[in-house]
Nucleic acid binder design. Structure first.
Lengths: 344, 344
DNA sequence: TTTGGCACTCGCGCGTTCAGAGTGCCAGGA
DNA sequence: TCCTGGCACTCTGAACGCGCGAGTGCCAAA
């Protein structure tokens, strides 16, 4: 890679940067003359043309047809993001607005809902927020509630405020004392622990109960483990699909597969799953594994209540997007959500 | 109305029915010649033309421009739905598939999620399902969990399987005995009651506790009442937005406002709110209050675990939709969801 | 290495043409 | 009175041709 890039001197990079910026703004192929007019490159159109020819040779830009301007390729955007763009920080008023908007949330659902809407509004694109995953969370409390003689409701509350509940059909009638003992035992061992660690900590629990109660205890534990293991039941919230209509003129062709992809939680989860936890990830065009998203870019990042990231959020937009602005918004929102989660 | 309709003899109604059916199928204005070919009306094109002129005169159909075929108007669809169409029942295999698909659900979230996806698939349109509302539900159980000395989690479980939880910050440390007493008192009075009735039943509860504990009791009750009153926090689930792409060729113009409307939970709730509880409601075109939906129709119906409907579900599609089929699917799905809820 | 000049290439928008579908109307027939 | 076949008319949409202009590549000179 260094070899290729070395061939591009500073001016060629400046030209590429200018092309990306102009194209993102105008949505139209940009020509040499327009370039020198709008950016003071200090050289003539002819010179720019030579540079453009070089850039095209290297595959960073592309012209739809002879006698048309140039358009950045996926590779061009990649170079732009990696070496030419700076994340654009949010302005102070924007930061205040974000903060203020998120502060009003009452529970986890609300936090996620507000976050996703905010992100969609800020970027004017499609926003995706993953619920804090169970894997990295710790147990805050486990509650058992007798609803009927042989029916118990199991409620699991995590430190991120997430609540999971399951019905348990017990093999026989469940005494209130047994339930109380079990509740105490569960909480004393599991509270504060990471969810994936919990099963290991409860292994010898049935042995501590009387023979007659063991089936009940085992059944409850089984349901609990099931709930803990259900990472696949990760939820996602979406907003801003209406922004897809600003995608381009060649409409239905582009929008349909994107809408389809957005409906598939699995695809979205996989998309976010490919995010590096700490660093912001930008996947451009065909870098996205999924077929329907080859003309989109995904900007995503992890967020969390402390140092560790417990879930991810991101934005999906056309490859022709304002990368610095989008990245700035994504980073800022992730940071503030983390703060909110840490406080609650 | 009878006056107007009387002017339309049976053949004219048959012509209207044929026009609606053909137009729904082909998406193209339908002419007199094509009509007699595809439906055996037993008369010549010229006769049909006369009838069409009459129908147009009455405002049931409309021609985009001279020398084009006819298109049904909203009024035409209305007449079709009211008098000419029969709800098309699902076939036995379809019913089995519905049943089977919904049976796999594990909790309320899952039921709703499966329902909405199923409905979107069956109708190939946008489906909307409202979570069982709190208003019509009854209390199954109220649970209080001490998370910290002065922090209590309140969990409300309804007969529809919905779980609401709230944090309560108490004025002082809360004793475990008080909590237990309160829990018992709450459940003995509220269990099985309709949610809106609960506050009235708990009025003199604080008086039954010792002076010192009353602030705590009041605080918990206040939060409970708040939770009960939060009907506005009604949730909705959506699926099938990708089907919007099949709306028409005149794309972005139509799809944008629809997507925007779909993002606004408030609008969707109001839309479903206008549904008659028992009967299926069909709102055609401009009958929908909301501006963005004037070129869509909404088919909705209530569903519930027993006789009473606890929430609503429906489908949003172009006014040019297959009404009999859509209505059949909506009715069938609503019925089966009701059954599932009653069982769990 | 940069620059101005120049010939060349296409896509786009525009006006024109043309065929086909559909209509309204009318006069004749059941 | 109602239906039908015939006929002239209207209008859209596709196809075609044409000219403009933006943009290019190349070359020779600075």
């Amino acid at each position: 890679m260094a070899g290729e890039v070395r061939q591009l001197d500073d001016r060629k990079l400046a030209v590429l940067r200018a092309i990306v910026q102009d194209y993102v703004g105008t949505e139209e192929p940009v020509g040499s003359k327009a370039l020198v007019e709008r950016h003071n490159l200090g050289v003539s159109p002819a010179t720019v043309r030579n540079d453009m020819a070089a850039l095209e040779e290297e595959g960073y830009i592309h012209q739809p047809h002879t006698s048309a301007g140039r358009i950045p390729t996926d590779k061009g955007y990649r170079l732009f993001v990696d070496r030419l763009a700076e994340v654009k920080p949010m302005s102070a008023p924007e930061r205040r607005a974000i903060r203020h908007f998120l502060d009003g949330a009452v529970d986890l659902d609300d936090v996620v809902a507000r976050t996703v809407r905010l992100l969609a509004q800020l970027t004017r694109q499609v926003a995706v927020v993953q619920y804090p995953s169970l894997t990295r969370s710790t147990v805050r409390h486990i509650e058992l509630v007798a609803l009927a003689p042989a029916k118990v409701m199991l409620v699991l509350i995590t430190n991120t405020g997430r609540v999971e509940q399951r019905m348990v059909d017990c093999p026989g009638t469940v005494g209130e004392t047994v339930l109380a003992d079990l509740r105490t035992a569960l909480n004393s061992r599991a509270a504060g622990r990471l969810l994936p660690d919990v099963p290991g900590l409860l292994e010898e629990l049935p042995a501590m109960f009387e023979q007659a109660d063991r089936p009940t205890v085992s059944t409850v534990l089984a349901t609990l483990f099931e709930t803990l293991a259900e990472q696949n039941e990760e939820r996602i919230m979406l907003a801003g699909t209406a922004n897809l209509t600003r995608f381009g003129h060649d409409f239905p062709l582009t929008i349909q597969p994107v809408l389809e992809a957005l409906e598939e939680q699995v695809i979205l989860l996989r998309l976010l799953g490919e995010t590096n936890d700490a660093a912001m990830t930008v996947r451009i065009g065909r870098e996205n594994a999924y077929e329907g998203l080859i003309s989109t870019s995904v900007v995503s990042v992890g967020y969390g209540s402390g140092d560790e990231s417990v879930a991810k959020l991101g934005v999906i937009g056309p490859t022709r997007m304002d990368y610095p602005g989008t990245m700035g918004a994504v980073r800022a929102v992730a940071r503030y959500v983390g703060q909110i989660l840490a406080e609650s």
